[in-house]
Amino acid sequence: MALLEIKDLTLRFGGLCAVNALSLEIEDGSIRSLIGPNGAGKTCVFNCLTGFYKPSEGEMLFQGTSLVNKKPHYITYLGLARTFQNLRLFKEMTVLENVMSGMHCRTNAAFLTTVLRTKGQKAEEKHIREVSEECLDFVGILDKKNYMARNLPYGDQRRVEWARALATQPKLLLLDEPAAGLNKDEKARLIKLMHRIRDERSITIFLIEHDMGLVMKISEKIFVIDYGVKIAEGTAQEVRDNPKVVEAYLGKEEEEESA
């Protein structure tokens, strides 16, 4: 059974159809990409999956559980974590605190245990800290754990987002344009990191990307959408040769970065 299954997903805003009858499947342990020109509705798909938008029609099954009408926090609890296209760190908090947020849904200390600072609560706090540090170590910025998030360079901020998503202990990681704004070196490291995440932590990866080169290198299978409709699906080679994809990309000017 596929880890994630999207069937006829449709999202309308007023009269505008942002996503139109999209169907796709993501197998456990794979790396999949969703590409398409600007404004094709890629981020909308993610927002539906993570509960930020309510789809107008269609079904989304994660390990057989429907994600429709579920709140974002519950979807994260189920094992879907995401990063944001424009970084959404807690800027005024330290890097470590940022990553600790991911552990929230895996822990449960409440009012009384907190005030009494019971043994269980202390152990849990320690556990939160350890897991978070381990995640920071994994992405390679453990040495910066006490920095304010806003004081980090852009590339490191991205890594904090990754560590934060990993701390939620997901089964499926949704990455929204992970390579945006990175230089060539950083991109190479990013590819390595994605492979490590999949291989060492057995987390499935589904990403949206603009950078065709990166996508071609990393994903075993690619979905292409344009105007909310899936126009192609297959390996890098197949997609590249598909005339519809060529038309979608070359038929019009590439615009500047936008949602």
Partner: peptide
């Protein structure tokens, strides 16, 4: 504490907090 931090996360960025699994 975990609870105190969750309030801080929400104050900083409600959507990001929800995406991290915090029930706002």
């Amino acid at each position: 504490s975990r609870m105190g931090r969750s309030w801080e996360y929400i104050r900083e960025d409600e959507d990001a907090a929800a995406a991290m699994g915090i029930n706002v």
